[in-house]
Simulated scan of single mutants.
Amino acid sequence: MYGSYHHRQRRKPMGEINVVPFIDVMLVLLVIFMITAPMLNQGVDVELPQVSSDPIDTEEQEPLIVSVDREGQYFISLGDEETPVALDELGEKVKAMLSRNANTPVMVRGDRNVAYGQIVTLMSTLQGSGVGNVGLISEPPSGEE
């Protein structure tokens, strides 16, 4: 008979952790990041010229980047904000951004297929807005890093 005097066997606590659900979640996250990483194309699609040069150290402050894409459109980006802008408004916007912090480095990203005159016009506009030093962004040749 099974009465109130019957003692159940107690289970011993298990000293192992089941890591299978953790591994499943990690594999799913790995697949998601592998798929989305190539899609994270930051900035304007610009095909930079490839030249050998020493990198400029801009770690102390994030630079103001002015880009010219293949179609000749201008973009201003400071950090993650990227806004298209017309050339006649570009000088005023750069001057306003530099008035907040005058030590902000200014860099130009120009597509290799853009006419040289357009880059010179951009640099002249930047100079007219009070930028004394302009850096040019390029990519290292295919075999170098």
Rank of each mutant, 00 (worst) to 15 (best):
I17Y: 11
H6P: 00
T125C: 08
E62C: 11
D54W: 04
M1S: 08
E145H: 09
V106C: 07
V51I: 14
D80P: 08
S52H: 13
I76G: 02
T58R: 07
I76Y: 02
M1N: 05
I137K: 09
Y116E: 09
M26A: 05
V134M: 09
L136I: 07
S142F: 04
Q42F: 00
P141Q: 04
M1C: 02
I65K: 09
L48D: 10
A115Y: 03
G117T: 06
N41H: 13
S138A: 15
V51A: 07
L136A: 14
T104V: 15
L87S: 11
P105Q: 11
L30Q: 03
L30M: 11
G130D: 09
A96Y: 01
L30C: 07
R8M: 15
R8A: 14
P63T: 00
P140T: 07
D69L: 06
E144F: 15
V106L: 08
M97A: 15
P105I: 10
S124I: 09
I56N: 02
R100A: 09
S142L: 07
G43N: 04
N41C: 02
D80Y: 01
S124P: 02
Y2G: 10
L90Y: 07
I76F: 02
V114N: 02
V108D: 06
Q50S: 14
L78H: 12
V106M: 08
V66C: 02
L30H: 00
P140M: 13
R11Q: 06
F75P: 03
F22E: 03
V46C: 03
D57N: 15
M107C: 12
V31G: 00
S142P: 06
R10G: 09
V120Y: 01
S67M: 10
D54N: 10
L98Y: 03
E47I: 04
G117N: 04
N101H: 11
